[in-house]
């Protein structure tokens, strides 16, 4: 349900759709480059309820619903491998 669908307004002409698709693909390509840059880096995740955890980023699924991470440092110990639900994440950061 978090996937955002393409415009479906009636009467949108093909030139507008073309422009929108170009914009969409440029934005998406840049976002995928961000994920690639994040691979194998230490990432700090800000979760709800002001929880902050750190882990090594592995991969994301295409809908950006889950992140696969390693060495997740939690208040009750280190989880070797984990999936984070992106719905639970407010923001995340890393150094390039």
């Amino acid at each position: 349900p978090t996937t955002i669908s393409a415009s479906t307004e009636t009467g949108t002409d093909s030139v507008e759709i073309g422009e929108e698709q170009r914009a969409r693909s440029a934005l998406r390509e840049s976002f995928l480059r961000t994920l690639i840059a994040m691979t194998n880096k230490q990432v700090q995740f800000h979760m709800y309820e002001r929880v902050k955890v750190e882990a090594k980023f592995g991969a994301s699924d295409i809908d950006v619903l889950n992140f696969q991470v390693s060495e997740l440092q939690t208040p009750i110990g280190v989880q070797k491998e984990a999936l984070l639900r992106c719905q639970d994440v407010i923001s995340y950061s890393f150094d390039l």
Binding site: F31, T34, I62, D63, I90, S91, S93, F94, D95
Partner: peptide, 30 residues
């Protein structure tokens, strides 16, 4: 960029004196 799928926004901050830039992604729903 802004991810057109999740609406997450990617922010970059540059450090003074050419240090490594920091990237922060705010998830679209937040």
């Amino acid at each position: 960029t802004v991810d057109p799928v999740s609406a997450s926004i990617v922010l970059v901050t540059f450090q003074e004196k050419g240090g490594t830039p920091t990237v922060r992604v705010v998830t679209g729903h937040a």
